[in-house]
Design a protein around this nucleic acid. Structure first.
Length: 554
RNA sequence: GCGCCCGUAGCUCAGUGGAUAGAGCGCCCGCCUCCGGAGCGGGAGGCCGCAGGUUCGAAUCCUGCCGGGCGCGCCA
């Protein structure tokens, strides 16, 4: 019974462990983990299942572990070389040469679909991100949201979900009016109004718009032209950053299509709307919010919240099953009311997810750059890219959990550009490319022959077993990719990929040190070249998820 | 005052119940007749904020406290 090229050998191994645990008739085995022991001498993989089962079986965990070990000996057969019980009841598995050979073959058979997931139930996910007001350039803070949101979108796609990237354009309302007034003031040669936009770009924009015949008297027109000009700039910046949207959803469209009225009508119909003090309110306290919220102000204008309800209702009507909406930390107080609004519409609020983006401080010369858009005193994403490049910018911004505020030290990012972590990973990729070129597997004219080579190497019978510890360590690392992608996608945690990429690069460098590839004995060379091909694809895939390039040469 | 987030090595941060807590940077010591030294190996450096609790086992879960960030508008 050969099951060659199992698409995910680790998943298969985990399934065997779970099946064996279930066979012991205890409850609670479902939470069992399959992980790597802290020391390689302890085994290739380890499970804690016995300790979880012990209470239900009313038996000492060591004893349960021994029974589990016996069951696994039967089910794993020749895949396992040895199975131990250790410590309080860990079951440690040492896998055989055969298993390693099959695992290598499976990596190569996966081709460029490496890491691709197939969830039990693929979801339609709408990732709305950046959504910065079109009243100024993209700031670094918004850039972090862009890097994060785009990586989450890429992750969800690779994990097998259907993803739409959307930018919500606040091209209506108070801020746009202020923006228009600021432009008009500059056209007259005046200072912008109190609370207006003081940035130099406003003056430049005023000049451009005047040259194109815009009038300083028509604020609606100025607002429209001004926000459209900024939108184009924003789009260009994000494009440069490697971020592209499937759709730009205009707030103005909500008004034009009477979607706000429709949303409020539905809320009223469902009995959650009331009027007092001349305003129209939504009773969000009924759904866990700590105070009720205004939908229509006493002056008759809908609030931002009302527009946002209409927008999210529209997302639901477009059949989005999950609404992933990274928000700046200063908006986190907004989440309970949005959840309440969705609940009031009869929508499960858990479909709405708002990961909170904590601050990123740009530090230069030991000082924090200020980033107030209205005061025009900020670092733009374009400036950051000019400074440290797209790859470093995306790598650094995704490196840390979205939930953690961190300092991005420009001096460090610049001066470290030789020893930058991003180059560490990219260097591994370039080195791999070089080895494959040397071996003739990369082909002189490009990577075309690499795939053909991989296919021929995917026949496990031609491969030597990975015998060296460094080979096995690298192989096991590569096998983790599907699980890493799944976990990172589920947790909306692309920063895990950085850690994985670094670990993969480190394992590769150790392998490179210990294992001669080109010129090794025939089966060994084939196996090692196969490992190189798979490693190169793994690194490229992982970096690709972060939007970082994988150079063939550096 | 209330709510959310954070507190882990000198610095920036990983680690959402497992074995002796990790990475990068910085510091110290080694390694290029050999597939790329943008690399590798070794070392120093930790009351995982504090105090209780839960359990076979806690950086991880619960409670309280201390410290920091961000919110608490008929602004967006």
């Amino acid at each position: 019974m050969t099951a060659p090229a199992d698409p995910d050998p680790l998943a298969a191994l985990r399934a065997s462990v779970l099946a064996a645990a279930e066979g012991l008739d205890g409850a609670g085995g479902g939470r069992a983990t399959l992980e790597r022991p802290p020391k390689p001498e302890l085994g290739d993989y380890s499970t804690n299942a016995a300790m979880l089962l012990a209470p239900a079986l009313a038996a000492p965990s060591r004893e349960v572990a021994e029974r589990l070990r016996d069951a696994l000996r039967g089910s794993l057969g020749s895949s396992a070389e040895r199975i131990d019980v250790a410590g309080p009841g860990f079951v440690n598995v040492f896998l055989s040469d055969r298993w390693h050979r099959e695992a290598t073959a499976s990596l190569l058979a996966a081709g460029d679909r490496l890491g691709t997931g197939r969830p039990e139930r693929p979801l339609r996910v709408l990732v709305e991100f950046v959504s910065a007001n079109p009243t100024g350039p993209v700031t670094v803070a918004a850039g972090r949201g862009a890097a994060y949101g785009d990586s989450v979108a890429r992750l969800l796609e690779l994990a097998g979900h259907e993803v739409e990237r959307e930018y919500y354009l606040n091209d209506a309302g108070t801020q746009v009016r202020l923006f228009a007034e600021s432009i008009a003031a500059r056209m007259r040669g005046d200072e912008p109004p109190e609370g207006g936009y003081a940035g130099e770009y406003v003056a430049e924009l005023a000049g451009e718009l005047a040259a194109r015949g815009a009038s300083g008297d028509d604020l609606d027109d100025l607002g429209r032209r001004g926000t459209e000009a900024m939108r184009e700039r924003i789009e260009a910046t994000l494009e440069r950053f490697g971020v592209r949207f499937d759709s730009w959803f205009s707030e103005r469209r909500l008004y034009a299509a009477k979607l706000i009225d429709a949303a409020i009508a539905e809320l009223r119909e469902r009995g959650h709307v009331f009027e007092t003090e001349g305003a129209i309110w939504l009773r969000t306290t009924e759904f866990g919010d700590d105070k009720d919220r205004v939908l229509i102000r006493a002056d008759g204008e809908p609030t931002y919240f009302a527009a946002d309800i209409a927008y999210h209702r529209d997302k639901i009507e477009r059949r989005a099953e999950r609404l992933v909406t990274p928000l700046g930390a200063d908006h986190h107080g907004y989440i309970p009311r949005m959840r309440a609004a969705l609940a009031a519409l009869g929508v499960d609020p858990d479909r709405y997810e708002a990961p909170i983006m904590q601050l990123v401080n740009i530090v230069e010369g030991g000082q924090r750059a200020r980033m107030s858009k209205r005061e025009g005193d900020f670092v733009t994403l374009d400036e950051l890219i000019d400074d440290i490049g797209v790859d470093a910018a995306r790598f650094f911004m995704v490196q840390r959990s979205h939930d953690t505020a961190f300092d991005l030290d420009l001096d460090l990012a610049r001066s470290a550009s030789q020893d930058n972590p991003v180059y560490y990973v990219q260097y591994a990729h370039a080195r791999l490319a070089s080895i494959l070129r040397k071996a003739g597997a990369g082909g002189a004219g490009g990577g075309g022959d690499e795939a053909a080579f991989a296919v021929s190497a995917a026949d496990e019978s031609s491969l030597a077993a990975a015998a060296e510890p460094a080979e096995r360590a690298l192989l096991r690392r590569l096998l983790e990719l599907p699980g890493e992608v799944r976990t990172a996608a589920e947790r909306r945690a692309p920063h895990r990929l950085i850690a994985y990429a670094m670990a993969t690069a480190a394992d590769f460098h150790a392998f490179y040190r210990d294992c001669r590839v080109v010129g090794a004995e025939r089966d060994t060379e084939a196996a090692r070249l196969g490992l190189c091909v798979a490693t190169k694809r793994t690194v490229a895939t992982t970096l690709g998820l972060i939007g970082v390039g994988s150079p063939e040469r550096m």
